[in-house]
Design a protein around this nucleic acid. Structure first.
Lengths: 220, 220
DNA sequence: GGATTATTTTGCGAAGTGGTACAAAAAAGA
DNA sequence: TCTTTTTTGTACCACTTCGCAAAATAATCC
């Protein structure tokens, strides 16, 4: 009996078996948070009640509170999870060294996918739709929303710098400024998706944005 | 005594003196609606309570209901008022026949003015911030939000068509598509204003958008 | 088995929600 | 002065909201 409880018990199977002491959880924190994210993403902060969260997660309110904290805490965690998922979906595309126009096309395609997703209707972008609403008077939420916008801007800026180095983009362009316009396309896609603009129209906007940024396409 | 009550009494002074029969109103409907608009614009639909509206307008709830209807009715009227005001502020600029780049600069300047306005903090754009949130599940509100986006798109499209006719814009450009990108800049300004991005930064984005749309500036 | 620990369940309470009924108030008309 | 008409102010309703305390439950540890 060397190990006590300070380090992982290292059970036989998956890392998801620490076998703690008391009554076992009836929920999986990660999937519960995913459901909470779905609700906040769809309805926003103010329009979401703890009862709705409770129903969506299958946890009753005290369990919710114990696991994640109060409503605002759940919101913050849900939003961070949203950010993390978005980061994962975008990472490969930003990292690939394909032609700039193609990278842009793929990035916008992923964005559109996310924004029109939703069981009961297109949800748009969590950052643009709900995070910015709460951002004005809540400094913490504002910092989160700002970092969400910044992250996208900076990713685009890196992309454009690399494209300039490869000669795919005019050397006179300001990468940081152009990045914010590339993000602007993301934002308009989010807004328009939310009012049920058809996917086809969104794709046309995305293509036009990519064209405008890269310069007119040479061939077709 | 020819005229009864079907037509205007045409009192001596302003048209605001029909002198109706019962107890006179303690509020002016128009300024009350302006206050309601301020609240909804700032807080959105869900986070606004009738008590808040009551306090802001100086009307108590029954009077609010009598004058404008239920909460959603007030919201709709407030949003329509917002639209009307925006239309007024933009109309002259869109109608002027100045150089395209200058028109764009002015349009974006007005937008920034509106979006950073607000006694307690920047409010962003009513359409982008709150109308789109409610738009997913409420067909009426969706139609309103869509028409709000469309109106801006179409105004830009007319602008670009005229610019093409004057030779200020490449004939190969698609005015309708380019218009949606011009609107995208509006949307990103709204989003960023809401998270308290400084005015100076917003102006830089607006200038970059105008440059990108018009083509690089010839001189400076 | 009994003690310990962690979680769920039940239920409550205080505040807030949108909406309304009803009487008092304030004007014009007779 | 008395009636009629319109609006206001008070009070209330049924319901929802968030958060929490206390008890019940289910596991491990000894």
């Amino acid at each position: 009996m060397v190990q006590k409880r300070s380090d992982r018990p290292a059970k036989s199977e998956a890392p998801t078996a620490p076998r703690k002491r008391g009554r076992p959880r009836a929920y999986e924190p990660d999937v519960a948070l995913a459901r909470a994210m779905d609700v906040f993403w769809r309805d926003g902060f103010a329009a979401t009640s703890l009862d709705t969260l409770s129903a969506a997660t299958g946890m009753n309110r005290p369990s919710l509170y114990g696991a994640f904290g109060d409503k605002r805490d759940i919101y913050v965690k849900a939003y961070e999870r949203y950010r993390e998922r978005g980061r994962q979906r975008m990472a490969d595309i930003f990292a690939s060294d394909r032609p700039l126009r193609e990278q842009l096309r793929q990035i916008y395609a992923v964005a559109i996918d996310m924004y029109v997703s939703g069981e009961d209707g297109p949800r748009g972008c969590f950052t643009v739709m709900t995070a910015t609403s709460e951002a004005v008077f809540d400094p913490v939420l504002r910092e989160l929303a700002v970092s969400g916008l910044d992250e996208m801007d900076r990713a685009f800026a890196r992309l454009f710098k690399a494209a300039q180095a490869k000669g795919e983009l005019a050397a006179t362009a300001d990468p940081a400024l152009l990045a914010q316009l590339a993000s602007a396309a993301i934002h308009t896609l989010a807004v328009r998706a939310r009012v049920r603009v058809p996917r086809k129209d969104l794709e046309a906007i995305a293509a036009a944005a990519a064209d405008l940024i890269c310069g007119r396409p040479k061939d077709r």
